[in-house]
Amino acid sequence: MKRAFPILAVLTAVLLSYALYQALEVAPTEATMGDVQRIFYYHVPSAWTAFLLFLTNFVASVVYLIRRNTKADIVALVSAEVGVVFCTVVLVTGPIWARPVWGIWWTWDLRLTLTLVLWLIYVSYLMLRRFSSSGQTPLMAAVLAVFGALDVPLVYFSIWYFRTQHPSPVIGGGGSLDPRMGRVLLINWAAFLCFAVLVCWSRYRVERLQREVEETQALEGLLESRGAR
């Protein structure tokens, strides 16, 4: 397993630079939007990766609630952290693209709002992890993750109703995608996914080491206090 890590790192580096070349040079320029459309190759793969990481967090949280397994807790933690980073990329690149194309930075559209609410839920998840006392953190966080997952369909329907009453600018959906663009998109997604797995993996290793160090220190402290007596 340990040898796989540098291989994955090299693969990620190669894929990321190849994907960058593809997105900036090879992919055809969009007819109406021009070059600004190229941000799409970062925006969409980031969104897919973020949602996948949030899903991973939910599954790991449920596993933790059932099994009380430390590994599941670490997976939940790192997938939420990296997921929030990718989700932030989505929320930042979206308005950069929307301003020249739609003429506005932001609209309360279904997908935008859902992404924002997910981001808010997961930021509160990370805040809870940071603020709660160590022993109970995994359990509280897992419970909150389950509540967040229960919330997602409700958020979806509430915004769906909201949208039907307050029509906002139409999204450039419905059109067909140039197959060359689709290919570049998939290459970018593969690169981003590798990158996400790489970051999660290293974060996982750091977190495990950190917990081992804390345990050892606690144990040493205990032994010392006994020895002193």
Binding site: V117, L120, S124, M127
Partner: peptide, 13 residues
């Protein structure tokens, strides 16, 4: 911080 994000759909409704 915990309650408001989860309550968004309820508050909207």
């Amino acid at each position: 911080l915990l309650l408001f994000p989860i309550s968004i759909p309820a508050v909207l409704a």
